[in-house]
Simulated scan of single mutants.
Amino acid sequence: MATIGTFTRTNGSFTGAVKTLSINAKTTIKPADKANDRAPDYRILTGSAVEFGAAWKKTSGEGREYLSVKLDDPSFPAPIYATLVEADEAGTFNLIWSRRNGD
Protein backbone atom coordinates (compact mmCIF):
# COMPACT_ATOMS: atom_id res chain seq x y z
CA MET A 1 0.00 0.00 0.00
CA ALA A 2 1.21 3.48 -0.83
CA THR A 3 -0.26 6.93 -0.30
CA ILE A 4 -0.26 8.58 -3.73
CA GLY A 5 -2.28 11.67 -2.84
CA THR A 6 -3.50 13.93 -0.06
CA PHE A 7 -6.76 15.90 -0.25
CA THR A 8 -8.97 18.24 1.73
CA ARG A 9 -12.76 18.47 1.43
CA THR A 10 -14.42 21.79 0.56
CA ASN A 11 -18.11 22.18 -0.30
CA GLY A 12 -18.51 18.53 -1.35
CA SER A 13 -15.37 18.47 -3.54
CA PHE A 14 -11.88 17.24 -2.70
CA THR A 15 -8.76 19.19 -3.69
CA GLY A 16 -5.16 18.06 -3.54
CA ALA A 17 -2.57 16.30 -5.67
CA VAL A 18 -1.79 12.87 -7.04
CA LYS A 19 1.95 12.14 -6.89
CA THR A 20 3.81 9.05 -8.08
CA LEU A 21 7.15 8.55 -9.82
CA SER A 22 5.50 9.47 -13.13
CA ILE A 23 2.53 11.67 -12.07
CA ASN A 24 2.48 14.99 -10.26
CA ALA A 25 -0.96 16.51 -10.87
CA LYS A 26 -2.95 19.05 -8.91
CA THR A 27 -6.32 17.34 -8.71
CA THR A 28 -9.96 18.09 -7.94
CA ILE A 29 -12.55 15.41 -7.25
CA LYS A 30 -15.96 16.95 -8.00
CA PRO A 31 -19.46 15.52 -7.54
CA ALA A 32 -20.91 14.26 -10.83
CA ASP A 33 -24.44 14.27 -12.20
CA LYS A 34 -25.43 10.61 -12.19
CA ALA A 35 -27.21 9.45 -15.33
CA ASN A 36 -27.80 5.95 -13.86
CA ASP A 37 -26.93 3.78 -10.84
CA ARG A 38 -23.65 2.61 -12.35
CA ALA A 39 -22.41 6.10 -13.22
CA PRO A 40 -19.63 7.52 -11.02
CA ASP A 41 -20.46 9.72 -8.06
CA TYR A 42 -17.42 11.95 -8.74
CA ARG A 43 -15.30 13.07 -11.70
CA ILE A 44 -11.55 13.53 -11.23
CA LEU A 45 -9.91 16.49 -12.96
CA THR A 46 -6.38 17.89 -13.19
CA GLY A 47 -5.72 21.52 -12.39
CA SER A 48 -6.22 22.33 -16.08
CA ALA A 49 -9.71 20.72 -15.99
CA VAL A 50 -8.71 17.59 -17.95
CA GLU A 51 -10.73 14.60 -16.74
CA PHE A 52 -8.57 11.59 -15.90
CA GLY A 53 -10.68 9.52 -13.56
CA ALA A 54 -13.85 8.78 -11.66
CA ALA A 55 -14.86 7.70 -8.16
CA TRP A 56 -17.74 5.81 -6.58
CA LYS A 57 -19.05 6.09 -3.00
CA LYS A 58 -18.62 2.89 -0.97
CA THR A 59 -19.02 1.77 2.64
CA SER A 60 -16.58 -0.59 4.35
CA GLY A 61 -17.60 -3.60 6.43
CA GLU A 62 -16.93 -1.43 9.51
CA GLY A 63 -19.36 1.22 8.26
CA ARG A 64 -16.72 3.76 7.16
CA GLU A 65 -17.42 5.68 3.98
CA TYR A 66 -14.72 5.93 1.29
CA LEU A 67 -14.34 6.53 -2.43
CA SER A 68 -13.30 3.80 -4.84
CA VAL A 69 -11.14 5.63 -7.41
CA LYS A 70 -10.11 4.78 -10.97
CA LEU A 71 -7.52 6.99 -12.67
CA ASP A 72 -6.82 6.51 -16.37
CA ASP A 73 -5.09 8.37 -19.16
CA PRO A 74 -3.63 7.37 -22.54
CA SER A 75 -0.15 7.98 -21.09
CA PHE A 76 -0.69 5.31 -18.38
CA PRO A 77 0.28 1.70 -19.15
CA ALA A 78 -2.84 0.59 -17.20
CA PRO A 79 -5.57 2.20 -15.06
CA ILE A 80 -4.69 3.06 -11.47
CA TYR A 81 -7.17 1.83 -8.85
CA ALA A 82 -7.05 3.47 -5.42
CA THR A 83 -9.13 4.30 -2.36
CA LEU A 84 -9.75 7.77 -0.91
CA VAL A 85 -10.12 7.47 2.87
CA GLU A 86 -10.27 9.96 5.71
CA ALA A 87 -6.90 10.35 7.44
CA ASP A 88 -6.27 10.58 11.18
CA GLU A 89 -6.29 14.37 10.90
CA ALA A 90 -9.90 15.54 10.55
CA GLY A 91 -10.70 17.01 7.14
CA THR A 92 -7.72 15.36 5.44
CA PHE A 93 -8.08 12.43 3.05
CA ASN A 94 -5.43 10.06 1.70
CA LEU A 95 -5.50 8.42 -1.71
CA ILE A 96 -4.13 4.92 -1.14
CA TRP A 97 -2.97 2.63 -3.92
CA SER A 98 -2.33 -1.10 -3.66
CA ARG A 99 -1.63 -3.53 -6.48
CA ARG A 100 -4.64 -5.63 -7.44
CA ASN A 101 -4.35 -9.40 -7.12
CA GLY A 102 -3.05 -10.94 -10.33
CA ASP A 103 -1.28 -7.75 -11.44
Results as ranks from 00 to 15, higher is better:
F93A: 01
V18C: 09
I29W: 00
Y81N: 13
T83C: 05
R99Y: 04
R9G: 06
S68F: 02
I44K: 05
I29D: 10
T15Y: 03
T6F: 01
N94G: 04
T10R: 11
A2C: 15
R9N: 12
D37E: 13
N36R: 10
E89K: 15
T27N: 06
A55D: 03
G53Y: 08
E65Q: 12
T27W: 10
P40M: 07
T28P: 01
Y81M: 07
T8S: 13
I44W: 02
N94L: 13
G91R: 15
D33K: 02
A32M: 00
Y42S: 08
N24D: 15
E62Y: 11
F76W: 09
K58M: 06
E89G: 02
T28R: 10
S75T: 07
G63Q: 07
K26E: 07
L95S: 03
D41H: 11
S22A: 14
G61H: 07
L67Q: 02
F7C: 02
E65H: 08
G61D: 15
P77F: 15
S68K: 12
A32K: 08
L84E: 03
T20A: 06
N101F: 08
G61Y: 02
G61W: 08
A17L: 06
L95D: 04
P40L: 07
W97S: 05
G12E: 10
G12K: 03
A82L: 06
I96A: 09
P40G: 03
G12N: 13
